[in-house]
């Protein structure tokens, strides 16, 4: 187990190093003069010089890279050129929206997908299965931002029960804030739930054919008990991996959905930073988001080992 963790940890560090190197090369070395990109063609020479100095562009690339990585590790992400505050402050401000949004979406999609997937597997080829599979085909095919717009049309334009966008802020109280996050979370959750339900279904179908499910039935367990205690429990192990992989899609979805609903989160921040050519913010956010994907998948690998005892200890008894 310790060896397994160390291996995964080493892979994590390598991936992060390579990622940071690529982001740095793409954002700072490839463009030649990042300051010129940030300020545009009509910039005055003295402003350019000032920005170059602030970004430390006079130093060699390697030194700049080391300073940047060092800053990432110590929590010093630099200062946004357009907002005039540190990137860390910007992130801190907006993660209070993006993180809860992502969590609600994950909870919603899991709560929807796993029961549906199990139901479809248990009722294979029956009406319930066909219905669930049809729903998942639609869920995968609907672009999440269009689904978000349809939700706005229904709930905000016609029924006027939920706001069309914006964020009330947690200061406004838990429920008002949650209300503004509800439609975005549903829009994020639907495609995830569709994929997850399909994965759950095929995974449960696979375990239902396993010998140990027949053993459980031979013990006298009812069909339902064998399904939930043996088939589902084991089927969820691969499902967890898929949930980890889905995290990166969730991030991508957040960038779009926050824009559909005008939510001031990390996704919208990165989008606005592009519009304002604030390369400092873009660079930091890209590496932070990429790092979160890598770290989440690392944690999923560990969870996998917790769920599957075969990955844990050494053999015994022989």
């Amino acid at each position: 187990m310790a060896l397994f963790v160390l291996q995964r940890l080493a892979a994590l560090v390598v991936t992060l190093l390579v990622a940071s190197l690529v982001v740095f090369l793409v954002m700072e070395v490839l463009p030649g003069d990042p300051a010129a990109i940030m300020l545009g063609v009509n910039a005055r020479e003295d402003t350019l010089a000032a920005l170059r100095a602030e970004m430390g562009l006079d130093k060699p690339a390697l030194e700049r890279y080391l300073i940047w990585v060092g800053g990432l590790l110590t929590g010093d992400l630099g200062r946004s050129y357009t907002y005039g505050v540190t990137v860390w402050e910007l992130v801190g401000e907006r993660i209070g929206l993006s993180l809860p949004l992502a969590l609600i979406a994950i909870v919603l999609s899991t709560a929807l997908a796993i029961p549906l997937g199990v139901l479809a597997a248990a009722k294979r080829n029956k009406a319930a299965d066909v219905g669930v599979m049809g729903f998942t085909q639609l869920g995968i095919a609907i672009p999440n931002f269009w689904f978000a717009m349809l939700l706005i049309l229904l709930f905000a334009v016609y029924w006027r029960v939920l706001p069309a966008g914006g964020f009330a802020g947690w200061d406004a109280g838990f429920w008002p804030a949650l209300q503004t996050l509800l439609l975005p979370a549903v829009a994020l959750a639907l495609p995830q739930a569709a994929i997850l339900a399909r994965v759950t279904r095929s995974s449960v179908l696979e375990t239902l054919g396993e010998d140990y499910v027949r053993t459980a039935r031979a013990k006298g367990l009812s069909r339902r008990a064998a399904l939930w205690r043996h088939a589902v429990r084991n089927a969820l192990i691969p499902v967890v991996t898929i949930m980890g992989l889905q995290f990166s899609f969730l991030l991508a979805g957040t960038i779009i959905i926050e824009n559909v609903f005008y939510l001031p989160g990390l996704g919208r921040l990165i989008f606005q930073a592009i519009a304002q050519r604030d390369l400092i913010v873009v660079k930091d956010l890209v590496i932070l988001l990429a790092a979160s994907v890598v770290v989440v998948n690392f944690l999923v690998d560990l969870l996998y080992a917790v769920l599957d005892p075969r990955l844990r200890g050494a053999r015994h008894g022989l």
Binding site: T15, V23, S248, A252, I255, L279, V282, V286
Partner: peptide, 22 residues
């Protein structure tokens, strides 16, 4: 495979964001 792992950390949208920023 490491290259794979690494590209995987950048969803299409994130790499598009980098590219369009430049």
């Amino acid at each position: 495979m490491r290259f794979n792992d690494f590209t995987f950390a950048f969803p299409a949208l994130l790499s598009a964001v980098m590219i369009t920023a430049l």
